[in-house]
Design a protein around this nucleic acid. Structure first.
Lengths: 180, 180
DNA sequence: CAGCGTTTACAGAAATTACTGAAATAACAG
DNA sequence: CTGTTATTTCAGTAATTTCTGTAAACGCTG
């Protein structure tokens, strides 16, 4: 870690801290940060030494990053160790991270709400409770649908859409009437 | 908890579990769920009994929910205890939750990246590292800008925008050329 | 301003989550 | 095969987070 440029160090440390807020663990996030800034792929041993964590921990963390598809194995001719690198396109990377988070943070709730809505139709329940469950279910369905649309777009289009900013809104006449 | 309708019970338990994935703690999320489905405001004692958690824990959790602005205190004539209720509009509620998450999950990183970009301009650093830091900084800036635009819209407009779905994209000609 | 009900702060206990080291397994070279 | 190096698994330990009970603070009422 001492060998790294201070900016790189700071980035890795910060990424690790933020990782815990993003639902990952610190080491997983640090490894990701290190690979993102590394000019060349690294092997498990190197990662372990640079970050000062055990090799077993590195192994587990790399497996997790691979399972999400943000890190992949590459090989160097004449070396039989596995080397790792992250995908390089940031937008692509966060698209993957977003889909992972949706799977963990939205989908289970959506499933529960759908089954609740079904049950509510057939069993008697306080009117207000019914209303609120239906309302929140509708909300999750809307978000899910919007996400699916977005997800199907090529990354380049998402990039353009996000960068368009409020031009989007004006074009659609959604702003301006009540406009804040 | 036993007195509650099974659907309500299931919702509260689920919300608690999901809360942990959303970066809240279980009790905070459960209290929120309970208040969301409760036909009337509840006081700390009632919440404590219904959920089977200590009153001090309820107190701390309510304070946290209030600090985010999703729960507020109301009073019942002739009763000097504090009663609590959530805001009722789901969209408004998640707008608040989203802004809280942005503050905790994006803003610190944005700050770090901004200062890193400044430093990079003046100190010599590996070209590839520089590129990647600039790229990720640009990404965060874009997301931040898009968020700000969205946040300034009235909730009703956000609701319409999300519900429009891919009509938005077609209208803007962002889909169709490469369209997936 | 005394007394009581309510809310908050805090220190330690309990539960959860992350990390390590050792041992097992796998991959290859000779 | 056999020896060597790389990777993964897993049980135990450490660190972190959450929860509780107690006690102090607050604020209303008479």
């Amino acid at each position: 870690m001492k060998d790294l440029h201070p900016i790189v160090q700071r980035f890795i440390l910060h990424w690790g801290e933020m990782g815990t807020r993003w639902g990952l663990n610190r080491t997983v996030a640090q490894i990701h940060a290190l690979l993102y800034l590394s000019p060349k792929p690294l092997n498990a041993e190197e990662i372990s030494e640079i970050l000062g964590v055990s090799r077993s921990n590195v192994s587990t963390s790399l497996k997790e990053l691979q399972s999400w598809g943000v890190v992949r194995v590459v090989h160097i001719p004449g070396d039989r160790r596995d080397y790792y690198e992250t995908i390089s396109d940031v937008w692509e990377m966060f698209k993957i991270i977003l889909s992972e988070r949706k799977r963990r943070e939205l989908d289970p709730t959506l499933a529960l709400l759908r089954s609740s809505v079904t049950e509510i139709e057939e069993s008697p329940i306080d009117k207000r409770v019914k209303e609120r469950v239906l309302e929140i279910a509708d909300f999750f369905e809307s978000i899910d649908a919007a996400y699916e649309k977005l997800h199907k777009m090529p990354t380049s289009a998402i990039r353009r859409l996000v960068k368009l900013g409020d031009k989007v809104l004006r074009a659609l006449g959604l702003t301006g009437s009540k406009g804040a």
